[in-house]
Amino acid sequence: MKHGFACETQGNLFFDVARIIRYHRPRCFLLENVKNLVSHDRGRTFSIIRNVLEHELGYCLHWRIIDGKGFVPQHRERIFIVGFLDKNDFSFDTLSLPDPLSGPRLSAILHPENGSEKPESHYTVGKKAAVSEKYTLSDKLWKYLQNYADKHKKAGNGFGFGLCDHDSVARTLSARYYKDGSEILVSQGCDKNPRRLTPRECARLMGFGRPGQSDFKIPVSDTQAYRQSGNAVLLPVVEAIASHILPHLQN
């Protein structure tokens, strides 16, 4: 698969962003991308981005790679880029972030399944709002994922499923989660196959709501919901950066 500007479907998105910035000339912007943006193509991709934003558009840039697991139980490293049209003393060094080693665990976003939240759609059922059986992996899929992991382990590779419990921090949620859910599987004990996260749990994992809450509407199919969550930005990280930006715009 091609990445960066060589990707025919996504490689030109940055230039669409640059076109929008050039037209509207905002006083400030905030961009997010995968952390490997800095090192992609030996740094050439990020060099092009900096050249366009700094020299062609005239913005002062600041960037930092932040792991969101201080906010949510997910290891998700992303680069955040802030650009100001006017020079000021903004710095990521003074951004206050929670300790990633003391962040929440998966239990913070899972359905409690004890009746403390109301059943929702087809995600949870019954008086205790237990997770629907549709999210439990079939014997066939579970066996395939185990065999796949064993194959790559013997070959010395690190590919495989990510089995979690309530005290875990999950791997990065991706847009492909709808395919088999392999990167984040919730253990249901030795006598039962693990399950995928529900779309509601995926939304919470990205910072959109908490257990017992369903204010964030999910009006789309499970497949589309998984894709949207995997492609989303971590809401609490963006909120923290936006709050850090605000005083510099007010001044």
Rank of each mutant, 00 (worst) to 15 (best):
D167N: 14
L205Q: 03
R204S: 10
S221L: 02
R196D: 01
D191L: 11
A175D: 08
S229T: 08
E183K: 14
Y226W: 09
A203N: 04
E183M: 14
D180M: 05
D180S: 13
K217V: 13
D191I: 00
F208W: 15
D167V: 01
I184K: 03
P199R: 03
I184C: 09
V186H: 05
F216K: 00
C190F: 13
D180C: 14
S174R: 09
R171G: 13
R204M: 10
D167L: 11
D180H: 14
R200D: 02
I184S: 07
Y177S: 06
R204V: 11
R204I: 09
C202Y: 12
L205S: 06
F216Q: 03
R171M: 07
F216C: 12
G230I: 04
D167A: 13
L197V: 00
P211Q: 10
S182L: 02
Q213A: 12
G189A: 05
S214R: 10
L197I: 00
D180R: 05
I184L: 09
T172C: 15
D222A: 12
S168E: 02
A170I: 00
G209M: 08
G189S: 02
R227G: 10
A225D: 08
D215C: 07
Y226F: 15
S168M: 06
I184P: 06
G212W: 07
T223R: 14
L205P: 06
P211V: 14
F208C: 07
G207P: 07
Y177H: 09
G230K: 03
T198Y: 09
S214Y: 14
S221C: 04
Y177P: 05
F208L: 15
G207C: 08
R200G: 14
F208S: 05
G207M: 08
F216P: 04
R196P: 01
E201C: 10
A175Q: 10
G212L: 08
Y178A: 13
K179S: 09
T172W: 10
Q224I: 11
Q213R: 04
E201L: 10
G209W: 11
G181V: 01
V220G: 01
D222I: 01
C202G: 07
V169N: 00
Y178H: 14
S229Q: 15
S221D: 02
V220L: 07
S168N: 04
D191M: 05
R195A: 10
R210E: 12
K179N: 03
D180A: 13
F216L: 05
P219G: 06
G207N: 07
G212K: 02
G181K: 00
D215P: 00
G209H: 10
R200M: 15
S187Y: 04
V220C: 13
A170D: 01
F208T: 04
R195T: 07
Q188I: 02
Y177N: 05
R200I: 14
D180E: 13
V186F: 13
C202S: 12
